[in-house]
Nucleic acid binder design. Structure first.
Length: 780
DNA sequence: GAGCACTGC
């Protein structure tokens, strides 16, 4: 009843609608009067390029004819010359030969798996094939194509807008965090997978879309994995929704199986052959071997640039120096340029990898060469043309999660076969190349795992579980994960969310949890934001949370450490690193967000700018949740009520990340009893008995980083459930808390804490930054 | 007295 009402209403809006009573017929026969009169349903003139198109039943020839016509069917404007030139190139892409096969599959199946190598053109062409068949614009819907990375979503959208001869943001657009470049007219939308997931939290059936294309599914990011599980649920309730999952070839069968044996289409790529060389014996020192190999290639091989994969910044900078120094000593080799590449490198420095190799010293002499030494960044996110030689030592830094101690850390680990193949492929982008694997062939065959473990098996799942609950998935244990996470990891997440009050004791989402899920930050930080008005300091907590969500603000160039540390000292707050962050932000805003100020003070301008972006977004969410944006009257004294309020609010999110200083001077984490040390970058002196920390850094030592001093009383008040001493292991901290509880019980007329006393003392306002600086100087 | 693979909302 209501269904038919809706349909009759929308037909007035000139959108073609199928007759619901004809749903048993094949799509081409569903439109009233059959295909021949379909043009009337669309309200298109008889000479319109799409006049004879039947939604979901077009042919490849029809699509191609429309693309080769005079008029752009979606804008009504004549096609440009540039368009025709691009179109000729598009027709040569491998995927173009499979247009008919693809349309057959997608018209007759709800889910299609498509595997394509790099260079097949799948990311740009498949969505366009669908636009011409599904005709989303005529039903008030859109086609979504998700990408794991923002840059990819943006650049592919730009490319496809050109290919379709439309203005970016109109018919074709993209939607990523902080930037929605779409409009009412948008029918094809590239977006990050995280963005689509967030949309699903408010629109669980994704009603705005007629088709969803999940691209780069082999990447297996947290968001892609959740989206895939979600799509399986949604297609049951939305028979009209088409889903295409696109992936690299290696584990295509797994995707097919997961989607109940959906049909699979395979498209070859367009790359050049790469010869693989293995070492006869295992290398004991991969770094040394890598440098040696690079120099060897430089001395003996033909012209062509080198790409060397290493694991991290320090290693990369070190290798760059050594390669440069040694190569410059070689009399019989050409000139060399060596560039590092990792994500935290400023964009300017990153761009240098595209510079041309230096020319030979003398005409006809040994070739000059470019060497790029990179992290995994060059494995997928970034492509460098002209690479002919790849050196793959077989390692990368990978995130691992240990649910027992609830710690995520980065570990240098062997890569997978899939990664190794991806790396070697980078040598064959422009011509045949060579890849030197610094491990034995036997190790490749027998020791490397097939594919890198998906992120969902290597992460703390707090956010994931909260998101799933918000998506309406109650039974997590039976949720159809492509790779189910360890039960212990799920348990840890449920436990965390329960202590934070996001889930009740039965595991159901609370109203608080529902608001928490809306915030694009960790559950702990979301809780902190939501609770902060109660402590009168939501303005300050928004700032702190923003800064915790961007890379480190403080720069420390190796040759200027002393000056950098002095600059940082101006901002340091005796009560901890969180308040130090607040000081930096305040000083940055006071400077007028000045780039030079940042440079002079060893602060990362880009980071502060992006933190400010995050803050604006958080503010919007706070307002949407009707949370007050407030500050306490300013009081410059450390441990005064102003700063105390903030530190109490920090506890509301971080009460599970507490460490207590033992008499030995060591810190022990609460409940887990891990021995930790304050990270040397902390501005906190070593006399604080109780501290909360943002991050547990597992390296040679266990460090806690971004630390603030708190008081045991606050912890007991804020999280009585968590600080239930019966569940505590024996340690000094437990005894201190026991005494505290006893004292509280015995004194019926409990003495007020010192800080409460402070709170009663009204203090006059004064310049915050100035006072803080004086205060920190005095302490020094 | 040390380090941060890479993404994303």
């Amino acid at each position: 009843m209501s269904d038919s009402k809706k349909r009759s209403k929308s037909s007035k809006e000139d959108t073609p609608k199928e007759n619901p009573y004809l749903a048993h017929l094949p799509p081409s026969e569903r439109l009233v009067g059959g295909a021949s009169s379909a043009k009337n349903s669309y309200g298109l003139a008889a000479n319109h390029p799409l006049a004879n198109f039947v939604m979901g039943a077009t042919t490849a020839e029809q699509g191609e004819a429309a693309e080769e016509g005079e008029t752009n069917p979606f804008t009504g404007k004549p096609f440009s010359d540039k368009y025709r030139k691009i179109l000729a190139g598009r027709r040569k892409l491998p995927v173009n030969k499979h247009r008919k096969e693809f349309l057959d599959l997608v018209q007759n199946n709800q889910v299609v798996i498509l595997v394509g190598e790099t260079g097949s053109g799948k990311t740009t062409q498949i969505p366009q094939f669908m636009v011409f068949d599904d005709l989303p614009a005529f039903k008030g819907k859109k086609i979504a194509c998700t990408q794991p990375r923002r840059l990819a979503a943006m650049s592919v959208a730009q490319r496809v807008a050109e290919e379709m001869d439309v203005v970016m943001g109109q018919e074709v657009g993209y939607n990523i965090r902080f930037e929605d470049c779409t409009s009412e007219r948008t029918m094809l939308q590239y977006m990050t997978d995280g963005m689509l997931l967030r949309e699903a939290m408010n629109d669980p059936l994704l009603t705005r879309y007629s088709a969803v294309i999940l691209d780069e599914a082999h990447d297996r990011t947290l968001s892609t994995d959740i989206l895939m599980g979600l799509m399986k649920e949604i297609i049951k309730k939305r028979p009209d929704l088409k889903v295409v999952v696109m992936s690299a070839t290696l584990d295509a069968g797994k995707f097919q199986k997961y989607f109940d044996d959906a049909p699979l289409m395979s498209v070859p790529g367009r790359t050049f052959p790469v010869e693989i060389y293995y070492t006869p014996e295992p290398e004991s020192d991969y770094l040394e071997a890598a440098i040696f190999t690079a120099l060897q290639i430089h001395r003996t091989e033909d012209a062509g640039d080198i790409l060397l994969f290493l694991t991290g910044e320090e290693e990369i900078e070190d290798a760059c120096r050594k390669i440069k120094a040694e190569a410059d000593q070689m009399p019989d080799a050409g000139p060399i340029k060596v560039y590092p590449l990792y994500s935290t490198l400023p964009p300017q420095a990153q761009k240098r990898i595209y510079d041309d190799a230096p020319p030979p010293r003398t005409p006809g002499g040994r070739p000059g060469r470019k060497v790029v030494v990179s992290t995994n960044l060059a494995e997928t996110s970034l492509t460098i043309d002209g690479i002919v030689y790849v050196i793959d030592p077989g390692f990368s830094k990978q995130k691992v999660y240990n649910p027992r101690i609830r710690v995520e850390s980065l570990l240098v680990s062997p890569i997978s076969k899939a990664s190794a193949q991806q790396r070697s492929g980078r040598a064959g982008r422009t011509r045949p190349g060579k890849c030197f694997r610094l491990y034995t062939e036997n190790a490749f065959m027998k020791e490397l795992i097939e594919t890198t473990y998906p992120e969902i098996l290597r992460s703390n799942l707090g956010t994931v579980v909260l998101q799933l609950k918000k998506l309406g998935i109650d039974d997590l244990v039976h949720f159809d994960f492509m790779d189910p996470p360890a039960p212990e990891t799920l348990m840890r997440a449920l436990e965390l969310l329960n202590y934070l009050g996001a889930l009740d004791d039965d595991g159901n989402m609370t109203p608080l949890g529902s608001i928490m899920a809306d915030f694009p930050v960790d559950p702990q930080l979301a809780k902190m934001l939501i609770t902060s008005p109660q402590y009168g300091c939501s303005n300050e907590i928004m700032t702190i949370v923003s800064l915790l969500n961007v890379p480190l603000v403080f720069m420390r160039p190796p040759d200027q450490r002393k000056m950098a540390d002095e600059a940082k000292a101006q901002f340091s707050h005796p009560d901890g690193d969180h308040l130090t962050l607040l000081n930096v932000y305040h000083a940055y805003k006071t400077s007028g967000e000045d780039q030079k100020w940042c440079y002079d003070n060893f602060c990362n301008y880009r980071t502060l700018k992006s933190a400010d972006n995050v803050r604006t977004q958080l503010k919007r969410y706070m307002e949407r949740a009707d949370l007050d944006l407030v500050s306490l009257p300013f009081d410059e004294r450390p441990k005064g009520p102003y700063y105390t309020g903030i530190r109490k609010a920090l506890c509301a999110g971080y009460f599970m990340q507490v460490a207590h200083q033992e008499r030995s001077g060591n810190y022990l984490t609460v409940k887990d009893n891990q021995v930790v040390r304050l990270h040397p970058s902390s501005c906190l002196d070593h006399a604080s008995e109780w501290v909360i920390y943002n991050e547990f850094v597992l390296t040679n030592q266990n460090y806690i980083r971004t630390v603030s001093e708190v008081r045991a009383e606050w912890l007991l008040d804020i999280a009585p459930n968590y600080f239930d001493l019966e569940s505590f292991p024996n340690c000094e901290g437990k005894r201190v808390l026991e005494k505290l509880i006893m004292r509280r019980k015995s004194s019926s007329n409990r003495e007020r804490d010192d800080d409460d006393e402070d709170e009663r003392r009204k203090s006059r306002k004064s310049d915050r930054g100035d006072r803080d600086r004086k205060e920190s100087k005095r302490r020094r």
